[in-house]
């Protein structure tokens, strides 16, 4: 699916660009985007390493284990196929905690490690397991409680009360997450009955 999606984005973009006379812009965009990706990665290196370093300390002290314990009932409910005490529980808990704290870039490494472990649990199949689908849906539904970056942009552009969107944002996030969880739970049940 990802292969088709990627190919279609490029093909549609180029066809529309030719028809609209934007072909020079497209030429520039391909070159600039690849450069942009590299500079983004270099910028990410420091912050990412800062976080994985801190997480390693937290792991070593057993803090992550106690965070995981606090999240265990929720993770148990969302991911019934994961064996109890498996390392992937810790990865998912860290991923969720980072998402909740609004450290989206920090959630990714933990999420990726969780995916690799889930793949092993799924006999290395190239078909997604129900747990993988749930992890992705919950991640995409946004767990972030305080959108710090958006508040910063709002104040930068002269908002009288930049923080006024926090509570409405929490309500909207809760609704999107609840709908995502309901969808994932129903889809899991349906796929097992088949």
């Amino acid at each position: 699916m990802i292969n088709y999606l990627w190919a279609f984005m490029i093909l549609i973009g180029i066809v529309v660009g030719v028809l609209g006379g934007n072909i020079a812009e497209i030429s520039n965009a391909t070159i600039n985007s690849s450069k942009e990706a590299v500079s983004l990665c270099i910028a990410m290196l420091g912050v990412m390493s800062m976080w994985t370093g801190l997480m390693q300390v937290a792991k070593k002290t057993g803090l992550v284990t106690s965070f995981t314990k606090a999240l265990r009932p929720i993770i148990c409910f969302l991911f019934p196929d994961i064996p109890k005490g498996h390392i992937v529980n810790e990865y998912i808990a860290s991923n969720m905690i980072a998402n909740i704290l609004g450290l989206g870039w920090a959630a990714t490494p933990m999420g990726l490690m969780a995916m690799k472990e889930l793949k092993k649990l799924n006999n290395n199949s190239d078909i997604a397991s129900c747990d993988m689908c749930t992890l992705l849906i919950v991640n995409i539904s946004s767990l972030q409680l305080i959108p710090v970056n958006i508040i910063a942009y709002r104040s930068q552009y002269g908002s009288i009360n930049p923080a006024e969107i926090i509570v409405p944002g929490i309500i909207a996030t809760t609704i999107s997450t609840l709908v995502g969880v309901i969808f994932a739970t129903v889809a899991r049940k349906l796929s097992k009955h088949r």
Binding site: M115, A128, C133, I137, F183
Partner: peptide
């Protein structure tokens, strides 16, 4: 996520 894990069939994830 799916590319890093080497999963190509994503089932109902996109819909959800």
């Amino acid at each position: 996520y799916f590319m890093a894990a080497g999963v190509s069939k994503t089932r109902y994830t996109l819909a959800g």
